[in-house]
Design a binder for these strands. Structure first.
Length: 493
RNA sequence: GGCGCGGUACCCAAGUGGUAAGGGAGAGGUCUGCAAAACCUUUAUACGUGAGUUCGAUUCUCACCCGCGCCUCCA
């Protein structure tokens, strides 16, 4: 079986085939950096990350480009209000976004920025105007003339057939030929930031950057374009119009859109009080790995209800996986058991089948846990042998190449947020839980191993008072001690 | 109003025309100097409501109820 993906353009699940064998060229719409990224943003980016990782696991070389929108109306307004230049204003949010993405183990694509490509955008618009797909208004702005592009609406399945060129629908937009025409270039209003360009002073409209930068990086036609579902219309529809109007070639083959999430059962909104940035969640003591796991656990086309209870559950699930890996590092009798070899192989196949099926992450997780349970039971009954470990571990790794939750770097990532909170004067928002987790990461492995060795020695001497004292000390520092048949096992809690 | 998605156990959540994955929580158990942790077992006469198609529907069709999304800046 091969990867099958839902394509917004066709409205069906299709077998994914890139234009060039073995290579996928994909573009993802990145953030507009006017604020810290929220959990909804990251749902989309985690979904795209899973797509990227699975494409690579499927053997493709992946060229993945993402834009950062570092100029738009909101940025211009907010930066002016803050008395900062556009660059100064966006710098902190860009940095925060990249840190947050890294905390969630979102692999960094090649990044392109709107402000670094303004001459190309102006040139693109000039050529569109030359072909009469764009027109200039009196103030020096440019608009795209959708009446000249008959297939407008093909992505969002909207019918604009009734729209007449020249119909003056909205009095506020009197300069446009048609109310649906969208801005390619905005002439500066007095006091606004602007760029000089071959088509005059101004700033790019929002949609143009993605057409220009994606085609510049990936070619006139490329394989995959991804983003949140809200981008289907108008953003991506407009990208198609601009791009195909200019090149007269199909712009993108597959359109991938992640569904919005709900927070505590409601649409996330500042007014509802259920609006959370990633940093808000970390400040409350939630681990990035739990957040990633929860975001990944509902297939990307389904509405995901993000709740704090769900986050707890995700933490427990991740723990179970990490414990299993820890357990596999133990000693087992020599030899191999056919049942375990089969289990690893079958699970590997199930993982592939699940993800091939439009990235059904929920099923992949189910397959993984089936293996964990069966292997744990085999360990308990002495039916797992040393040679069974590598294939089981390989399957676990196959899973984690996509989900990326096994490595526990939560403490270090969370420490970063504590540092940020201090710099930003948000120290009062740092929760006790956050400090506890960060604290458990403070002791080095070596120090812990040393204490554990002392504890073992005390126990062997049946000096339980001394052993319990060390255990209490470690517990107090956030280190969980597990006493097993094979000796003491520890982990950060 | 137009287009679209969903309603599955206490919670989250897959899925199939032949009677329900997985995780969490709860319960029971194993292990243990004690404790914790870990691990195992277990938990839906039934998939929003009604009708229809069918030998058979949770899965298909229709209606209705409820929730949600896009149509305007929004991941």
């Amino acid at each position: 079986m091969a990867l099958r993906l839902f394509n917004t353009l066709s409205g069906t699940v299709e077998e994914f085939r890139p234009r060039v064998d073995g290579e996928v060229r994909m573009y993802a719409c990145g953030p507009t950096v006017y604020d810290y990224g929220h959990i909804g943003n990251f749902r989309t980016f985690v979904a795209i990350d899973i797509l990227r990782r699975y494409l690579r696991q499927s053997g493709y070389r992946v060229l993945h480009v993402m834009n950062i929108t570092d100029v738009d109306d909101k940025i211009i307004r907010n930066s002016a209000k803050a008395g900062l230049s556009v660059d100064q204003y966006t710098a902190r949010y860009q940095k925060a976004f990249l840190e947050d993405a890294a905390a969630l183990h979102i692999e960094q694509p090649r990044i392109v920025r709107a402000t670094e490509n303004i001459p190309s955008m102006a040139e693109f618009i000039r050529r569109l105007a030359e072909k009469e797909f764009a027109y200039r208004t009196e103030d020096g702005s440019y608009y795209f003339r959708i009446a000249r592009f008959p297939s407008y609406g093909k992505l969002s399945k909207k019918d604009f057939a009734g729209m007449e060129d020249g119909a003056r629908v909205d009095v506020d937009e009197y300069e446009k030929d048609n109310a649906r025409d969208f801005a390619l270039w905005k002439a500066p209003k007095p006091g606004e930031a602007f760029w000089e360009s071959s088509i005059g002073p101004g700033r790019p409209g929002w949609h143009i950057e993605c057409s220009v930068m994606s085609m510049q990086e990936l070619g006139d036609s490329f394989d995959l374009h991804a983003g949140g579902e809200d981008l289907i219309f108008p953003h991506h529809e407009n990208e198609i119009a601009q791009s195909e109007a200019l090149t007269e070639k199909p712009f993108v083959r597959f359109w991938f859109h992640a569904r919005f999430l709900l927070v505590e059962g409601e649409k996330m909104a500042k007014s509802t009080g259920n609006f959370f940035t990633l940093r808000d969640l970390v400040l409350k003591g939630n681990r990035p790995s739990s957040i990633r796991y929860l975001l990944a656990s509902v297939p990307y086309r389904h509405q995901l209800n993000f709740t704090f209870e769900g986050l707890q559950q995700a933490t427990a699930s991740v723990e179970r996986l990490r414990n299993f890996r820890l357990r596999l590092s133990g000693r087992f009798p020599a030899g191999s058991a056919p049942a375990m070899q089969d289990l690893a192989r079958e699970t590997s196949g199930r993982l592939r089948d699940a993800l091939d099926d439009d990235l059904n992450t929920a099923q992949a997780q189910a397959a993984m846990f089936d293996m964990v349970r069966a292997a744990n039971a085999a360990i308990d009954s002495g039916n797992l042998n040393q040679e069974d470990v590598p294939p089981l571990l390989a399957t676990l790794t196959q899973f984690d190449e996509i989900f990326s939750v096994l490595e526990d770097d939560d403490g270090a990532r969370m420490q970063q947020v504590v540092g940020w909170a201090r710099e930003e004067g948000k120290e009062k928002d740092v929760s006790a839980e956050l400090l506890r987790i960060v604290g458990s990461a403070a002791l080095s492995d070596g120090e812990i191993e040393r204490k554990v060795a002392e504890m073992t020695a005390a126990r062997n001497a049946r000096n339980f008072a001394a052993s319990d004292a060390i255990r209490a000390e470690l517990n107090a520092q956030g280190i969980l001690i597990e006493q097993t048949k094979q000796g003491i096992r520890w982990r950060r809690g």
